[in-house]
């Protein structure tokens, strides 16, 4: 078998084509992210957390809210003590969840709200027994 320069260029071209196609798809995905996402816990989900997890969530949410102007709209989460009263009431939590969806989803504050959405996801992943 003899491979000349022409054959090598064909091989290289064929090899590189799918790679560049994959890269294009990747960049497309990055350009239009799927933003219709879950921003916080549902009340049902909240009830499955143990006290330490709830406390960890409250602490990190209050911290995130204090550092961000957009998230600062969540007045309920300005103090950990006040926020803990919301965590135990279905009515109050549902109202807070609705407000968060409006502020994050409807008003398209995606990048600011990403921080609070991540708090939930990280907490779920951190204490998961699944890898």
């Amino acid at each position: 078998m003899k491979l000349n320069l022409k054959n090598w260029s064909v091989i290289l071209l064929l090899g590189c084509l799918p790679l560049s196609a994959a890269e294009k798809t990747k960049s497309k995905v990055k350009a239009v992210p799927d933003l219709d996402r879950v921003w916080t816990f549902s009340f049902e989900e909240l009830n499955m957390l143990d006290e330490n997890e709830k406390s960890e969530y409250a602490q990190s949410l209050v911290q995130a809210v204090s550092k961000n102007k957009v998230l600062g709209q969540f007045k309920e989460a300005t103090s950990e003590k006040d926020f803990k009263t919301i965590l135990v009431s279905e009515e109050k939590w549902t109202a807070f969840e609705k407000k968060m969806n409006q502020q994050c989803q409807d008003k398209k504050n995606y990048s600011d709200c990403d921080k609070v959405a991540r708090l939930r996801v990280d907490l779920l992943n951190k204490y998961s027994t699944r890898k």
Binding site: D34, R37, V38, F41, S42, E44, E45, M48, A117, R120, V121, L124, N125, R130
Partner: peptide, 11 residues
Amino acid sequence: VAADANYYHMG
């Protein structure tokens, strides 16, 4: 099933 928590609530 296990799913991405960014898009799904448990349950």
